[in-house]
Computed example of a mutant assay.
Amino acid sequence: MSENEDIYDSFKEYESVLDSLIEEYNRRFNDFEKHNITLKLAFQPHLVNVSEAPEELQMELIEMSEDNNLKSLFDNREDPIEIWKKAVEDPRLREHACRLISCFSTTYCCESTFSCLTQIKNSLRTQLTDEHLDVQLKLRTTMLEPDIKMLSRKK
């Protein structure tokens, strides 16, 4: 085989890998286009065509289109959470954005809890009961700080 044939075979191999990746990507994210308006309302509301938005949000979008400062915050890709907290006076748009943005943080909580679970219940702790696992997870994932002095006084 010549060097050109080797290169051709390598390209064919990469092409098939890339084709399968594209196919997998399209399969997993094929419904994103259906949610385009929903996502834009949270992250780029100033770019949404008012007539395409849900009716209950249209008036707020019209009012927002007049606010150049707000548009520049979204254009500069500022943190959308901070924008919605401080800059937006539109309750329906804010509620829509908060519902959508909170999905990502709850996914993070779920993923981090699952990581804790895999650390707690490893191959050395196979006898751990569900009750004990539950308690261990609560201890590992809580944001509360125990008041050791108060607890020891009660003992």
Rank of each mutant, 00 (worst) to 15 (best):
K71D: 04
N76P: 03
L57T: 08
K85I: 10
L39Y: 14
L41F: 04
N49Q: 14
Q44K: 11
K85N: 14
N68D: 15
H46A: 10
D79S: 05
H46K: 09
K40W: 04
D67E: 05
E82V: 08
K71S: 06
D75L: 08
N76V: 08
S51I: 11
L41I: 01
L57C: 12
A42I: 06
N68K: 12
D75M: 13
I62K: 14
L61R: 00
S72W: 03
K85C: 13
E52Q: 15
F74H: 04
V50H: 07
K71G: 01
E56Y: 11
K40S: 07
I62R: 13
K85F: 13
V48R: 00
L39M: 06
D67I: 04
W84F: 06
V50W: 03
N76Q: 09
P80Q: 02
K85Q: 11
L47E: 14
E78V: 10
V50D: 01
M59A: 15
D79G: 02
I81G: 05
D75A: 14
V50R: 05
L61T: 03
M64A: 10
Q58H: 02
E63S: 08
E52P: 05
N69M: 10
L70V: 10
S65P: 00
W84D: 00
F43A: 02
D79V: 05
E55R: 09
A53T: 01
Q44A: 15
L73Q: 04
Q58W: 01
S65E: 11
D79Y: 08
E60C: 00
N49P: 05
N69G: 08
R77E: 15
F74M: 07
Q44M: 10
L39N: 05
L70S: 08
E63L: 07
E78M: 14
E55Y: 13
V48Y: 05
F74T: 03
I62F: 10
P45G: 03
N68F: 12
I81Q: 06
I83R: 07
E52S: 15
